[in-house]
Every structure is written in C-alpha cells, then in structure tokens.
Design a protein around this nucleic acid. Structure first.
Lengths: 254, 254
DNA sequence: ATGAGGGGTTGACGCTGCGTCAGGGTCAAG
DNA sequence: CTTGACCCTGACGCAGCGTCAACCCCTCAT
C-alpha cells in the first residue's frame, strides 16, 4: 500500500495534482487508514499513469474521464478533436510570434510599415522626436479606422512632403512643441501654412467620409497640447474649421 | 467624447476587456459624466490600441504596463523574453501533438512501442483480450519504473514466448480469466508451470533490484482477480514466494 | 406619462490546473 | 519529548476575460 506521496513520486506527479484529480472525480478516492491517510494500490497507480499520459498529450482533464471509458472509435474521434484544438493553439501562438517580431522593429507599435516609413521621412526633414511621436499617435487612430486603405493614402502623404510648405509646417510644429508659448508668433505662421495648404487641396469628403475618427484626431491635438486651442482659433479666423479634415466656414457677417 | 461601448467598438475589443484593463490599472480610469458614465478621449483610444497590439502579440497584461513606459533597449529585451516564452509554449504543444498521434494508434496508452508489439504477440499465441489488458496494466507499472531499460528487457520477453511452456501459461491464464472458479484444477496447472519456469530461470536480483514496483505488480494481480490468492498459495506450497520476481522460500520444517 | 429597449454602472462567480499558504494531526527516529 | 517529514482539509491565487444579476440612465414611440 502506498501513501499519496509515494504514489505521486512513483508516477511523477505532485501530491497536489493527485488530490485535485480526486476532487474533480477523475481518480476515485481510495480507502483510508486509521489516521485518515489515503491508501493506494496498484490499480490506482495504473489509473493515475493513464490520466497523466492523456493529460500530457494535451487532453483537458474534463475529457479524460470519458476517454478512459470509451471504445476505440469514439476514442479516436476524441483524439482528433484534441489534435485540432492543439493545432489551432499552435497557429495562434505562431501568429503571435510574427507580431512580436514586428514589434521588435522600430515604431511599429500597432502600425503598418508604410506608416513607419512615413514617420522616418518626417525625421529626415527635421521633425523633432516629440513631433514624430505626436504624428505616430495620430496615425494609430487612422490605422485603426482605415487600415485597409492605408495602401492608397500613404503614397499621397509621401508626395506631400515634397512640398516645401509642408516641410516648413513640420519644422515649425517641431520647434513649437519644444519651447513655444501660447502667444508665440510662430502659431500664426502655422495657421497661415495650414490655411494655404487647405486652400490648395480642398478636402474631398467623398473618400474619407465623415466619421468619429476625425473628431478623435482633432481632439487628440487638443489633448496633446493645450496651445493647439489657439491654433484652431487662428484657423477659424482664416475661414477654416477643424484640422484633420478642414472645412470652409461661412464668412461671419461683417 | 466616447462612451465605453463606442471606445470598445472603435478599437475592436469588448467592453468587459476595457473595464478589466481599468481594474488592473493598465488603462487609467477616465472622467465620468453626470450619470457616472466613463468618457474617453483620443489619448485613451491610442493607449488602448497600443495595449491590444501588445496583448495580441502574446505579451502578458502584467508586463504591458512596463513595456509601454520602457526605452528601446529594455523594450527589445522584454520582447526577446516574450518570444522565448512563446517558443517554449509552441514546443510543448507540438510535443503534445506527437503524444496524441501515438495515442491514436492502439494500446499505446502510456506504453512504448516495444511493449505494444509484445502485447500483439500475446494475442497471436491465443491470449484472450482480458488477459492482454491485464498484462498491459502490468507493463504500465513496469514502464513507469524502468522505461529506460525496456530496450533490454523486451527482447528477452519476446524470446520467452518461443517456449511452449510460456505459451501454455498464457493460454491457461486466459481460459481461467474467462470462466474459472476458485477451486478450478487449472489453477494447479498454472502454479506448476510457474514453478517450473522459475526453476529454469532463477531471478537475477542484480538486474532488477528490489523495489516497490514489484510489490505493486504482485498486488495488481490480487486486485485484478481474487482467485489469484489461491494461485499464490499454491506457489508457496511449491517453494516460491512472490510472482513478478519469485523468491525461493526456506523449506518449512517437516 | 409611461413603457420598452438599448445604453451604462458595480459586484461577483466561472473557467483550467494546479501552487501555495494556513492550521492543524500522525508517525518514526533520536 | 522533541524534531522533522509526512498526511489532512479548506481556501485563495493565477490570466483574461465571459457571463449573469440587479440596478440606473436616456431616448423614442405610444
């Protein structure tokens, strides 16, 4: 007769595991001795080894009971289901590993490579690190909503950076982020640039559609830096509302 | 401003998940409106998307907090650790799949192929299915203790089956398992065969060592079939104790 | 005004497979 | 008699939410 510790040692499991199997009814409770100790015989050892070999093969404990009492056909069927489950799980983990590998490289936290390339471009034209981070956050919002269309959007954004006005926009923006105050004159310059750009390329509401995402991007600006309120005000003076998708405002009377 | 449901919809997570992230302090609790509803802004959306992209890459929630605030170096290091974890997990699951494939084939529940082959041999020489199951259980005990030595043990066992006496042993045993009674004369024949076999090949205690496993195997016999008590008694009369590893008994005085 | 339906709120249990205390009793040896 | 190594039961903890329960809030149609 074996104690629970000897049983556990013989079969290579922990005492706690054995008690757990009792608790869930997988292994029947054996007789007790005078002191209340469980006493195991050979059949218990065999049952436990069978349980472990199924468990180690990835069978959930809740199914092992059925499988041990099943005929060959339904056993094989159950095995097939387990194997499918394992395959799915492995696939999911391998997908995770690919994701992880992506994350290891650069800004790509949640961003596709086209956008990462764009951010790198920004650094090249002299945008500060804080500016790039702000842009990155904006692109996270955009990517969440229009991930599939990024392939069409990004080339246009790249092209815009050939425009010296756009370059100036990011440079002034970077400088402001570093040390600007609420009444910095460069805010006016920024507003002028934005108005000029909006004038040049009027928003085509068709392709973007109106969406909560634009509001989010606008509010991101405000949340990121309180000075942006002043900027939006200056933009309104110049006849433009919004920022991520500027709209022509009705000219105020007078 | 977004409600929790809108936030969840935008980022593709469940409402419950968002609340969970609040609970564990991963996502800061936002302001509430007059009714107590949570109100989310753009930064919350961005934070949540970052969290999800790490979580989907297999990063445990408990680590995501650290990683979001880490510099590039320790971020990369953390990523490495996650990747190692994922690799281990995948390996474990693939090992499980191999086990499962083994289980799908035959008796192999917890048994290596050499033993399965031996059991098949038993069927060929006319052992009944119940006899084979009893043997299989015995081998489960043996394999648990001497798995590494099975490669040396099994050839000898195979060879023993060339002995007509051994064949007769299994055949009589099979017959007894089906319909024998406690005073069946075939029990005597069985005892004679066992004694003769023990005489012929005395146990070499060196190679097996004395062990709890033998006691288990002996007790397995008794637990499996109460008639075996009579058999052991007959064996003792013939000067042999035990069964899995018979020992010469001191001849009783007189 | 009222009721229905579709939001939101907190709180708590459930799942898997045990690990790990806590707070005891038991047993063999020195 | 003490010590140390076992055994016992009971209960919380773990990851990442799913899923009630019981209640509040808002809006729209009747």
């Amino acid at each position: 007769m074996l104690t629970i510790g000897q049983l556990a040692a013989y079969t290579g499991v922990t005492v706690r595991a054995v008690r757990h199997y009792h608790q869930i009814g997988l292994l029947p409770e054996p007789e007790r001795d005078a002191a209340g100790y469980r006493q195991y015989g050979a059949t218990a050892v065999i049952a436990l080894i069978k349980i472990r070999s199924l468990a180690e093969a990835g069978v959930p404990l809740s199914q092992i009971g059925h499988m041990l009492g099943a005929d060959a056909a339904s056993f094989a069927q159950a095995v097939q289901k387990i194997d499918d489950r394992l395959r799915d799980e492995i696939e999911r983990l391998e997908a995770s590993r690919k994701q992880i590998a992506q994350l290891a490289a650069g800004d790509s936290l949640a961003l596709p490579p086209e956008v990462v390339a764009f951010l790198d471009r920004l650094r090249e034209i002299g945008a500060s690190e804080r500016m790039v981070e702000a842009e990155r956050d904006g692109w996270i919002l955009i990517a969440a909503r229009w991930r599939d269309q990024l392939g069409e959007i990004m080339p246009a954004k790249h092209a815009q950076l050939d425009d010296p006005l756009m370059v100036r926009l990011y440079q002034v923006g970077s400088a402001l982020l570093e040390d600007g105050t609420v009444d910095d004159p460069r805010l006016v310059e920024l507003a002028d640039i934005l108005a000029a750009l909006a004038e040049r390329a009027p928003p085509s509401s068709e392709e973007w559609g109106d969406d909560v995402a634009h509001d989010l991007i606008d509010s991101l600006l405000v949340e990121a830096d309180p000075r942006s309120r002043r900027l939006l005000e200056l933009l309104r003076e110049r006849g433009w509302g919004g920022w991520s998708r500027p709209e022509r405002l009705p000219r105020p009377p007078g």
